[in-house]
Design a protein around this nucleic acid. Structure first.
Lengths: 242, 242
DNA sequence: CGCACCTTTGAATGAGATCAAAGATGGTGG
DNA sequence: CCACCATCTTTGATCTCATTCAAAGGTGCG
């Protein structure tokens, strides 16, 4: 069981103290492996745990009465999932494993402990949650105000940026079926297919199997019609509790 | 300058200590009046302040290159606005006054202080932010996966529920023009008009001027095709810090 | 009273959904 | 190791909901 994933992520923004590292390590004590497609938390189910993603992808979604669903967010290693539990006793969202995954579950009371014992960590977690919110806002603007092609472009752009970092490679393994992409972009699988085809034909992306390569990141970003968010700034927490 | 609005809101969920009340009061020390339509924070502008809404409505929105915009959320008295600053130095969203409004601005460093001095308040604020996120998720599902009529119905339902409480009256003053409703639901103003007309003709709502009355709340909720969220539960914070 | 802004309605257009069916792909058991 | 079957992708034809374009009422404010 390696170092804390959360610590790894937070370490990119601030220098963590030994105590802080220990507290985060503690949070990820337990580990559970979940199978591809497994549901970690079902909608409207009572739930007590949040999760740190340690490996693989999860996604959170909301189901509509008629079989359709909307995927809200993809959760990658080092991120928190199940956060809505901090305001609701029953989970408003379904949390599903996209790939086989390893997660570290912890009770929400642990967050309370953290808030008293390690306020700076609490601030970092808060920052993480706010980042999620902004990502959600961007997705909302995309779905509400841009055409199909731009939505698919934005999703790909977001995934590549988050998985590879802004500088990193331009190629990712995409463990999603086209229906998933549709559920995330508010489109039908059929139309997603057409958009992917056009992006491919236009030389913006290249696909083989479940592997996607961004051929022209500039153009993909332009298609998405969204400015990149600047790097998050989580350093507002004064070290008075350092 | 009356009691803290935030305290008022939090008081519905927990019993606040005198210290906590004082701390919240302190947060709302300053007050600023803003004119209808005024922009409190512009997109991509550096900003240092968050706001407690004390009176009136605000909304946060994201602009797309081409004049269009997506309204993310309406902020009512007792709520926080400008939260994205906790993760970004430049505001990713525009914050606008829908009506003439009074707000209490405070530096984000105050949140840091609160997190060390009053961890339970920090938890309540976190809970508030999470509630926002869930509301955003519901809006996303609505826009991504439901037809125009349901989107308009959901927005009205949400506004009435949030303004009047679940039990309260079924009538609200709606200071939005149809273009605003379109920007919040991902529709054009023209189509919003048609949907409002149909909801009116079908005896689900009644309108006169900027006043809307819900004639049949059951039916409106059914149209919105969304289950009501259960009441938020913010009581997970153990009183170890009393 | 008059002008700016908002609402309402109609007609034409278009983007995306739906329906249908033919290729790929990959995992499983024989 | 291969054949088969389930699942996923791709493509075409048609339909529909929402947009766009246009213009006629309302409303309130200066």
């Amino acid at each position: 069981m390696g170092a804390s994933r959360l610590a790894e992520r937070f370490g990119r923004f601030v220098d963590l103290t030994a105590d802080e590292r220990a507290a985060l390590q503690d949070l990820e004590q337990a580990e559970r492996t979940v199978r591809r497609g497994a549901v970690l938390v079902g909608e409207n189910e009572p739930a007590r745990e949040l999760f740190v993603v340690r490996q693989g992808w999860l996604h959170s979604s909301v189901g509509l009465g008629d079989g359709t669903r909307q995927i809200m967010h993809f959760h990658f290693p080092g991120e928190l999932a199940g956060v809505p539990l901090l305001a609701y006793a029953e989970s408003p969202e379904t949390l599903t494993a996209v790939t086989e995954a390893r997660v570290a579950p912890f009770a929400r009371e642990r967050i309370a402990e953290l808030m008293t014992a390690q306020p700076r960590l609490a601030a970092l977690i808060l920052g993480q949650i706010v980042q999620d919110r902004v990502a959600l806002a961007d997705r909302l603007a995309s779905i509400g105000r841009t055409p199909a092609r731009a939505r698919v472009a934005l999703l790909l752009h977001e995934l590549v940026a988050r998985l590879n970092g802004d500088a990193g490679g331009d190629s990712i393994h995409l463990p999603l079926i086209q229906e998933d992409i549709g559920d995330a972009t508010g489109l039908t699988a059929v139309h997603v297919n057409r958009m992917l085809r056009r992006l491919t034909d236009d030389g913006i992306i290249a696909r083989s199997g479940s592997h996607v390569r961004i051929v022209d990141r500039e153009r993909l970003a332009a298609e998405a019609s969204f400015a990149d968010r600047p790097k998050p700034a989580l350093d507002w927490f004064s070290p008075s509790a350092g």
